[in-house]
C-alpha cells in the first residue's frame, strides 16, 4: 500500500486579527481565556469601545502556522460575544503602534534625543531637569528601530500600546 507523504513544511507566521465584540463585562476574558486554554500565542492585544458604545474593537497579534491560525479564527468566531472577525493579514492593511519612553536626558543627550525624535517623527511630551518622556507612532518595525536608536541611552520606562490595524480601501469591517 502506497502512503502519500505530506511534506508541506508548516511555517509559523505573524497574523494580525481584528475583532468586533460585544462591549460587555467578561467579553475580553473570554478571548484571553480562549488563547490560554488552547495554548495559542498572543503577541499583543488592544481593546477599547468603538463609536458604537455597545461594541468593542480588538486588535490581536498572534503567531502560528496557517492551520493553527485558521483554527484560532474559527474558535474566536465561536465565542458568542464575537460579532465579526477579520484576519487583516490576508489583505492590504495599515498597522500602527504607539510607544512611550521615559529616558535619562542630561547635557548633550537632551539634543541628541530631540534629533532622534525628529528622524522618527516622534515628540517629547514631558520633561524634568534630567529626563524626557517621548512618544513615537508607527508600525512595529519602526517602533523596534526607535528602540534600537535609543539603545545606548538609559531608559527608565517603556510602554507599547500593541498593534492597531485596519484594512486598506473604502470598506469598513461592519
Amino acid at each position: 500500500m502506497v502512503y502519500e507523504e505530506n511534506n508541506t513544511e508548516a511555517v509559523e507566521m505573524r497574523h494580525i486579527i481584528s475583532i468586533l465584540l460585544e462591549n460587555e463585562a467578561g467579553a475580553l476574558s473570554r478571548v484571553a481565556g480562549l488563547f490560554s486554554a488552547r495554548a495559542y500565542n498572543i503577541e499583543s492585544l488592544t481593546v477599547a469601545p468603538t463609536d458604537d458604545p455597545t461594541l468593542s474593537r480588538m486588535t490581536l497579534v498572534t503567531t502560528g502556522t496557517d492551520d493553527i491560525v485558521a483554527q484560532v479564527c474559527k474558535q474566536l468566531n465561536k465565542l458568542i460575544d464575537v460579532v465579526k472577525l477579520v484576519n487583516l493579514t490576508d489583505n492590504a492593511h495599515v498597522e500602527r503602534e504607539l510607544i512611550l519612553i521615559k529616558l535619562v536626558a542630561e547635557d548633550e543627550r537632551r539634543d541628541e534625543v530631540k534629533r532622534i525624535m525628529d528622524i522618527f517623527h516622534g515628540h517629547v511630551i514631558d520633561m524634568t531637569d534630567t529626563t524626557y518622556t517621548v512618544e513615537v507612532t508607527g508600525d512595529s518595525e519602526k517602533i523596534d528601530a526607535v528602540l534600537k536608536a535609543l539603545e545606548h541611552i538609559t531608559m527608565l520606562e517603556v510602554v507599547r500600546s500593541g498593534q492597531l490595524g485596519m484594512a486598506r480601501g473604502g470598506k469598513g469591517i461592519v
Binding site: V2, D67, Q71, N77
Partner: peptide, 21 residues
C-alpha cells in the same frame, strides 16, 4: 487513514480540519 480522501460533515465549523485536515 493514510490513503483516504476525507469528506467531513459537521454543524461546527471549528471541528473541520481541527485534528485531521
Amino acid at each position: 487513514c493514510p490513503t483516504a480522501k476525507i469528506i467531513h460533515m459537521d454543524v461546527d465549523p471549528a471541528s473541520i480540519s481541527k485534528n485531521v485536515t
